[in-house]
Simulated assay, not measured.
Amino acid sequence: MFVVILRFAANKNQAPQHMAGHQEWIHQGVQDGVFLLVGSLQPGQGGAVLAHDTTLDDLRERVAADPFVAHEVVSAEIIEIAPNSTDARLAFLAA
């Protein structure tokens, strides 16, 4: 399981130009079953993605393809988590 932190970067002001592509990138990640949760970092600091059922290398490629990352609207940090215990509702994450 991975957490991707997308913090606004040098070209934050270009976000409106790349928003449609970024939203399509999010939609594709959800459709592919890789993104379990996508949301905003508050207050207005960027975004975060909870990713699952992928490899670190594949996720790095996917993140690099985000127009926000490619155009330095955000900087990306990928954190890998190896779940030890989970609530029963999230047991699939430990599999």
Results as ranks from 00 to 15, higher is better:
residue 45 Q to N: 15
residue 31 Q to E: 15
residue 23 Q to P: 05
residue 53 D to I: 04
residue 5 I to K: 11
residue 73 V to E: 00
residue 85 S to C: 13
residue 16 P to C: 05
residue 67 P to K: 00
residue 59 L to F: 01
residue 1 M to A: 12
residue 72 E to M: 05
residue 42 Q to N: 12
residue 86 T to L: 14
residue 10 A to P: 07
residue 15 A to S: 13
residue 58 D to P: 04
residue 23 Q to S: 11
residue 45 Q to D: 12
residue 84 N to M: 15
residue 20 A to T: 01
residue 55 T to C: 02
residue 41 L to A: 07
residue 84 N to H: 15
residue 86 T to V: 14
residue 47 G to H: 07
residue 69 V to K: 03
residue 1 M to K: 06
residue 5 I to S: 11
residue 8 F to Y: 15
residue 49 V to P: 05
residue 94 A to L: 07
residue 37 L to C: 09
residue 15 A to D: 11
residue 8 F to I: 07
residue 29 G to P: 05
residue 38 V to W: 10
residue 47 G to R: 07
residue 89 R to G: 12
residue 60 R to M: 08
residue 76 A to V: 01
residue 62 R to G: 00
residue 5 I to H: 10
residue 91 A to Q: 12
residue 8 F to G: 07
residue 39 G to E: 03
residue 26 I to T: 07
residue 50 L to M: 13
residue 33 G to I: 03
residue 73 V to S: 02
residue 70 A to F: 03
residue 31 Q to M: 13
residue 55 T to P: 01
residue 29 G to V: 03
residue 61 E to D: 14
residue 75 S to T: 13
residue 81 I to S: 04
residue 37 L to D: 03
residue 87 D to Q: 12
residue 62 R to F: 05
residue 16 P to I: 01
residue 41 L to I: 11
residue 90 L to I: 06
residue 5 I to F: 09
residue 85 S to P: 10
residue 90 L to R: 10
residue 68 F to E: 04
residue 19 M to V: 11
residue 20 A to V: 02
residue 80 E to C: 04
residue 43 P to A: 09
residue 54 T to S: 05
residue 1 M to E: 07
residue 80 E to P: 05
residue 69 V to I: 07
residue 45 Q to P: 10
residue 46 G to I: 09
residue 44 G to Y: 10
residue 85 S to F: 15
residue 53 D to E: 10
residue 27 H to D: 13
residue 67 P to C: 03
residue 85 S to L: 14
residue 33 G to N: 05
residue 76 A to R: 01
residue 43 P to R: 06
residue 38 V to F: 13
residue 81 I to W: 08
residue 70 A to L: 04
residue 43 P to D: 10
residue 95 A to N: 14
residue 44 G to F: 07
residue 39 G to Y: 04
residue 67 P to T: 00
residue 35 F to M: 09
residue 54 T to H: 01
residue 89 R to V: 08
residue 77 E to Y: 02
residue 14 Q to V: 09
residue 47 G to F: 06
residue 65 A to E: 04
residue 4 V to I: 04
residue 91 A to N: 08
residue 17 Q to R: 10
residue 8 F to D: 13
residue 92 F to N: 05
residue 20 A to K: 04
residue 19 M to F: 15
residue 55 T to V: 03
residue 67 P to E: 00
residue 2 F to V: 02
residue 48 A to T: 12
residue 91 A to M: 06
residue 86 T to E: 10
residue 90 L to Y: 14
residue 33 G to K: 02
residue 9 A to K: 04
residue 24 E to P: 08
residue 28 Q to T: 14
residue 53 D to T: 06
residue 95 A to R: 13
residue 92 F to Q: 09
residue 52 H to Y: 12
residue 9 A to S: 14
residue 30 V to G: 07
residue 58 D to A: 10
residue 19 M to G: 09
residue 67 P to W: 01
residue 84 N to A: 15
residue 72 E to V: 09
residue 24 E to R: 12
residue 53 D to P: 02
residue 79 I to A: 06
residue 18 H to C: 03
residue 40 S to Y: 07
residue 9 A to M: 05
residue 24 E to F: 06
residue 67 P to N: 03
residue 89 R to I: 08
residue 84 N to I: 15
residue 34 V to R: 02
residue 59 L to R: 01
